[in-house]
Design a protein around this nucleic acid. Structure first.
Lengths: 196, 196
DNA sequence: CGACAGGTTGGCAGTGACTGCCAACCTGGC
DNA sequence: GCCAGGTTGGCAGTCACTGCCAACCTGTCG
């Protein structure tokens, strides 16, 4: 659909990435809440005003790129063959996210640790996930043979919420193991306990 | 354990309740984010400083009393007979919360609607729930015959997270039905879709 | 009754995230 | 050279929240 990828766009991307980099460095040096937006702006060489134009909130310095991942998740789930179960479709979606994040595992671990350690970040992350869940509801309802209506079906919503809960569980344990455990296996273990 | 219930304690309780009342009224009149803490303080007849001493954060005006419910939840789950399954123990815990909240259903609906409609409140609620989940982990691990260790068991964590996810699903749908649906049934429907 | 200790309150000034507004600037097309 | 549209930076303001200090209230002991 949209594929011009202007020079302007790319340079903006670069600026954003650089700001995120300096922010993460500062967060690692001083901690998240001890770092002010003014500091980030100063070290990144932009005005505070522009920093807020780029990111809107301090949390989005860390959680900002997740919107794109959410779209990928929904698209991947929707693209699964109709005979694939809701469970497997969702697993495929999360697998796609994990493999397509475009970061090194160390970077992912760093960001995840930051998020799990800071309540405001965790809250923001959760909020975004909620949007993903809402977007997935009609997709999963269709896959379960339920006619999407005004108010979502409890079964579909519960199933989605459960998968997210297990993904969260796996993520948190992965972080607490310092990235040394296999996230897929953790996810399977969590889900196995749920599904008998 | 602690049961003196000083006069002082009770009067403080009354003050807190009255402040919450005026706050909820203001939120209903103008919306949550359009209401400032200064307004709440003024109408409740306390200084802004004391208001923050009572509640700490604006969100706690709405979510403050949940700490007590969390303790009730954990205690109820722990008190179930050992042969009761983890699922049933958790259900008993949530049932206890629902019946012991000490509010009229209309009030519960009002508060729930407020929480579901305002991201910051929802985030705060989620944060508190996380603490409940962590407190429940060893209890459920024991019930599942798992030796509690340094890092929680994926199965136990996943099971707990799933129950919370389904409770959340039921709550949200209950709110979206304007309180006209049976929350227990919504919960059962959500869980049924998860457990085949 | 008066002095005293401990906890509670209110005001005040400050910090930090975030926003609206406006002027300066930079870019491309004519 | 000039103009329209979008981008930036600075400035002042709002609001949640905090530390500090002085005033106060309450109960206790002498």
């Amino acid at each position: 659909m949209e594929k011009p990828a202007t020079l302007w766009d790319r340079s903006r991307q670069a600026v954003v990435a650089e700001i995120v980099d300096t922010a993460l460095t500062l967060f690692a040096e001083q901690g998240y809440e001890a770092t002010t937006m003014a500091q980030v702006a100063a070290r990144a060489g932009v005005s505070q005003r522009s920093l807020f134009r780029y990111f809107g909130t301090k949390e989005d310095l860390v959680c900002g790129e997740q919107d794109a991942l959410g779209e990928l998740l929904v698209a991947t789930v929707a693209a699964q063959a109709p005979e694939v179960s809701a469970w497997d479709a969702l697993r495929a979606g999360f697998t796609a996210i994990l493999t397509a994040s475009g970061h090194t595992p160390e970077r992912v671990l760093e960001i995840s640790t930051l998020i799990f350690a800071n309540p405001p970040l965790r809250a923001r992350y959760f909020e975004k996930r909620l949007k993903w869940q809402r977007a997935l509801t009609p997709v999963i309802e269709k896959r379960m043979g339920i006619e999407p209506g005004e108010i979502p079906d409890p079964g579909a919503m519960g199933l989605i919420a459960t998968v997210f809960a297990c993904v969260d569980t796996a993520s948190e344990l992965w972080v607490r193991h310092g990235g040394k455990a296999d996230p897929f296996e953790l996810y399977e273990q969590a889900l196995a306990a749920v599904r008998d």
